[in-house]
Amino acid sequence: MTLQAELRVHRDGFTLELDLVVEQGEVVALLGPNGAGKTTALRALAGLLPGSRVTADGSSWDGLPTEKRPVGVVFQDYLLFATMSVLDNVAFGLRARGARKAEADAAALRWLTRVGLAEFAKARPRTLSGGQAQRVALARALATSPELLLLDEPLAALDASTRLRLRSELGRHLRDYPGHTLLITHDPLDAMVLADRLVIVENGRVVQQGTPREVVRQPRTDYVAHLVGLNFYRGVADGTEVRLDGGGTLTVAEPARGPVHVVFAPSAVSLFTERPAGSPRNTWRAVVAGVEQHAHTTRVDLDGSPAVFADVTTATVAELRLRPGDPLWVSLKATEIHTYAR
């Protein structure tokens, strides 16, 4: 069964035009920067905003108010009901949909057991840790067996170590869940780990979609390239020469023709104080614009034609004594550059 959605929301000068298809059992991540319209899309799907046309297996949700839609939502800050016990929170959806109390409580307890929180059934939500609250929110959303599970930045509110643990746990629950899942996130790692397919939105429109592997290899916008950590340019190829739109020319190994995207990893870039000898290399002059320490490497931001990011080792930083304003030579092997049609 396939779920199809056409979202058209216009408000306060912002337009969201998003067509989504989610297959049964598939996890689709809606990935995009803040303000791209991700949460608006979620609210439209849940019926909290007008402007969504959703059909699930031929039956339309149009005109259905939120409470009649077969959706489950895990909100970013979970929104557990503070005046109810954890068990009542999870049982709430079943009770609201007409289940008897004993029945709903038993089902809720089964869900709490599945997320490993059965002993907290009588507790109040505010006594839970962030990770526990997230699991209760997931149990509450799944307890009604929704056709569409919507997750709004489900890991964003957690600290780093909890996040790591819960990411794999959430992945397990999502694999077990037979319905359609739409995950909203601005974290590429969450999206890559949890989703089967990525839909990238910017300014209310889809700019790219594909499997995580496709997106990582061939980003199509600056935002996506930045997410996956690649140097990214647009240019026009003529054989092994690519003239970049923003200035500069690169020599590539695979010949191509016409408008292309050009990517290479920052780790493929070498920096020298003197002009390096040898070929086939691209070499050009650049000036250090910034130096930033990452986990095991140092990222150097260079102004030049083209501007480029380089990841170098700490040893190289020490050797070259990199400081903003320093002139350097940038060198890049043609075989490290990947081009694909625009």
Partner: peptide, 26 residues
Amino acid sequence: DPRYEEAAATLGASRWLTFRRVTLPG
């Protein structure tokens, strides 16, 4: 926070049920 009422709606609660179980206790 009216979003608690929205959360109740996504769980299938009518506005009256939401008022009784979520809004009023809050």
